[in-house]
């Protein structure tokens, strides 16, 4: 692969491979097993969300409501257990809520043909509002004794590997299998590449689009459960944070074009690793919060600018719907 053919994915990987040895040499304590696991653990939830976003983006959509799906159903679990319901019933309610939410998103996008950006922007607000107004007593839903044992999902470890990392790995394998080995996965790529063409060839595009959003909502819910059990509470206010930009960043930075039909799980992993390395290195260096944002912004700009230099857009390569 010549430098001319180096895509976004290659560039980001190059940045990552450049940054990593620098940190490893310059920062004592960076390249230790314990710190590597911490690094992965800190970005595991982000990575899982990236996978959910990847499924939707590959199918030429976007899911801005992902953070609401992360915050509200798991928050419901914590609230219901706090109110005295059993853990299994609470989990069932949360998954039902996630599926219903995914179905509404998918139906609006696939059947009512509302653009995904606007649909999920509004539905996310709706779900977060519903949570605040009707489901939760406080923004931060606290852990309660009824959940004891469940915190293993976020705090336990398997053979010394923290559970969030294990869950991220499992999610990567599951999503990679779905996208690469199943017919459904092939259909998602086809729809992302050319929706009309896919429909003409007889692919049931609308149900598959609905399914994408249901999967995204369920993965979001799982990520939320991991996050809640990791910090022993569900700060539902996270919906108002900039987390969704980080998720889109991981996906786009990794090289999954927003125009759909391109990329895969590897891209999400690369994007996640780069973000994780930067965050971890800068925390060790005790860089101030604003300093961290500055560095993050500069690295991203460099990656994007290099990409547009090496792979200039023209009429031939530009796709409809390219952002």
């Amino acid at each position: 692969m010549g430098i001319k053919n180096l895509g976004q994915q290659g560039i980001v990987f190059a940045v990552f491979t450049a940054l990593f040895p620098i940190f490893a040499i310059a920062l004592p304590g960076f390249l230790t097993t314990a710190n590597m696991l911490t690094l992965l653990q800190n970005v595991a939830v982000l990575g899982i969300l990236g996978l959910a976003m990847a499924i939707v983006v590959i199918g030429r959509g976007i899911d801005i409501s992902l953070i609401a799906a992360l915050a509200v159903p798991p928050g419901l679990v914590l609230q219901m257990v706090q109110d005295g319901h059993s853990l299994s019933i609470s989990l069932a309610a949360a998954f039902a809520l996630s599926i219903a939410f995914g179905l509404v998103n998918g139906w609006l996008i696939a059947y009512a043909e509302v653009p995904s950006l606007f649909t999920t922007l509004a539905s996310g607000l709706f779900l977060a509002g519903l949570g605040q107004a009707a489901l939760f007593k406080l923004d931060v839903v606290q852990w309660s004794p009824g959940l004891d044992g469940f915190e293993k999902l976020g705090q336990g470890n398997l053979l010394g590997i923290p559970m969030p990392v294990v869950m991220f790995a499992l999610a990567c394998i599951a999503v990679a299998f779905l996208l690469r080995q199943t017919r459904l996965g092939a259909y998602i790529y086809a729809i992302g590449d050319n929706p009309n063409g896919a429909r003409v060839t007889g692919i049931p595009t609308r149900p598959i689009i609905v399914l994408q959003y249901v999967m995204a909502a369920l993965i979001g819910c799982a990520a939320g459960l991991i996050m809640a059990s990791s910090v022993n509470s569900m700060p539902t206010r996270i919906f108002n944070s900039t987390l969704i930009y980080d998720v889109i960043l991981v996906v786009v930075l990794g090289g999954i074009g927003l125009s759909g039909g391109r990329g895969g799980v590897v891209n999400v992993i690369i994007g996640t690793l780069l973000i994780g390395t930067m965050l971890n290195g800068m925390t060790i260096m005790d860089v101030s919060y604003s300093g961290q944002n500055l560095v993050k912004g500069v690295v991203l700009l460099i990656a994007v600018i290099t990409d547009s230099f090496l792979n200039p857009r023209n009429e031939e390569t530009a796709q409809q719907g390219d952002i």
């Binding site: 304590g29 230790t32 314990a34 911490t38 800190n42 910090v231 944070s241 925390t283 060790i284």
Partner: peptide
């Protein structure tokens, strides 16, 4: 000495890294 933005998840990430170091 870092800002975690009143966010529990960020506070955890920072503290984990600091404790490893």
């Amino acid at each position: 000495s870092q800002a975690a933005d009143w966010d529990a998840a960020k506070a955890k990430a920072i503290t984990q890294t600091v404790l490893k170091q």
